[in-house]
Amino acid sequence: MIKIHNKIAALLLAMSFAITAHAQNTINNYKYVLVPERFDFLKTDDQYGLNMRTKLLLQQVGFTAFMTNEALPAEVAGNNKCNALKAEVVEKKKFLSTGLTLLLKDCQGTIVYKGEEGKSREKEWQAAYSEALTNAFTSLNAAQYKYEGTTAPQASQPMASAPPAPVAPAQPATVNESQDVLYAQANGNGYQLIDTTPKKVMTLLKTSQQDQFIANDGVSQGIVFRKNGEWFFEYYKDDKLVSRKLNIKF
């Protein structure tokens, strides 16, 4: 009887590894992910900054991510949508907690990847959704995504055309330096930046990357990161990338 149980356990473990490997190999076929302007459980576009944050978290994993309202490269524009996955975030109603799950679907609507549910017990909606979404990406980070240079089958093959020009990284439209000292106070999810008033001027949420945070100053949603020993806050305003230098003391 013990031998039978051992064989069943070994078989289930092998099946688990096979399923995980298959999912990882499948997402590795895709370079691009498209993020909608609004998820189904939200009432407004990019409510709580969740859609833009999903895009940033996908980029940190290694995908080339775009919002669906952005200009797309020729590889995924028009009839080439099957070259990209579509990101969806779904909410599971819970008592005294928030649960979010990341789905990546192909152009036929088939779920290619389903992550582990990310949970939060924060009471304030902004903090709860931010923490739950960050936790929802934990399993995708662990999958160690790496684009393998292959392309998923397309619904229809487009006519041959010249190879698209590489998409250049976005350049900041403006750079504003902030000389005011901002003091970082640690909390459960990252830090809050306090000025000398003292007044909270920005919230920083931890990511899987050191010295890189999801940031919200109450007006704009973006990222704060360190480059060459200096801190920068980058965000989009009127579809243009803005970079602001910060003086942060941790």
Rank of each mutant, 00 (worst) to 15 (best):
K200N: 08
T68W: 03
P166Y: 11
G149N: 12
A162M: 15
G99S: 15
A184I: 04
I111E: 13
T110L: 10
A128S: 14
A74Y: 08
V76Y: 10
D217F: 06
L12Q: 05
A184G: 14
G49P: 00
S243I: 12
K123S: 15
T26R: 02
E91S: 06
Y183H: 11
L58Q: 04
N25I: 02
G229Q: 08
Q24D: 01
V181E: 10
N176G: 05
A170E: 13
A142I: 08
A21N: 09
I111N: 12
C82E: 09
Q144S: 13
G78E: 10
V181A: 13
Q157H: 13
L204K: 04
G49V: 01
A127L: 09
L72N: 04
A77Y: 08
E91Y: 02
A162V: 11
V35S: 02
F95Y: 14
E75M: 06
L34W: 00
K119N: 15
P169N: 06
K92P: 00
K105V: 08
F225T: 11
C82Y: 13
K227W: 09
Q212D: 06
Y32R: 01
S139V: 07
C82L: 06
Y48S: 00
E177P: 00
L13G: 05
A152E: 02
Q210N: 14
A10Y: 03
L11V: 07
A71E: 12
K119R: 15
A127T: 13
I4Q: 12
L205E: 08
T54M: 01
N228F: 10
W125S: 12
E117D: 06
V181N: 08
L56E: 11
N135D: 14
L96M: 12
V35L: 03
T197R: 11
G149A: 11
E234A: 04
V219F: 09
E75Q: 14
P169H: 10
A23W: 03
T138D: 09
D239F: 05
E117C: 07
Y113G: 04
T151G: 05
V175L: 15
L140F: 01
V90K: 14
A128W: 02
E234H: 02
V201S: 02
Q47C: 01
Q157C: 07
D239R: 09
Q192C: 01
R38Q: 10
P36M: 05
G218N: 13
L100Y: 10
L100S: 11
K199S: 08
K43F: 00
K94R: 15
A14W: 00
K55E: 07
A21G: 01
Q144T: 05
K249T: 09
N228T: 08
T196G: 06
K123F: 11
Q24I: 06
F66Y: 15
T138R: 07
A143H: 01
Q157R: 15
Q108S: 13
Q171T: 14
R244F: 00
K200G: 03
V201G: 03
Q185K: 12
N25F: 03
V201Y: 02
T207E: 04
E148T: 15
Q221E: 10
Q185N: 12
L42Q: 12
K146R: 15
V224L: 06
T54K: 00
A132G: 08
I2A: 07
I214R: 06
V61P: 03
Q192T: 07
I27E: 00
G218P: 10
Q171R: 08
F41D: 01
K3H: 08
Q59C: 07
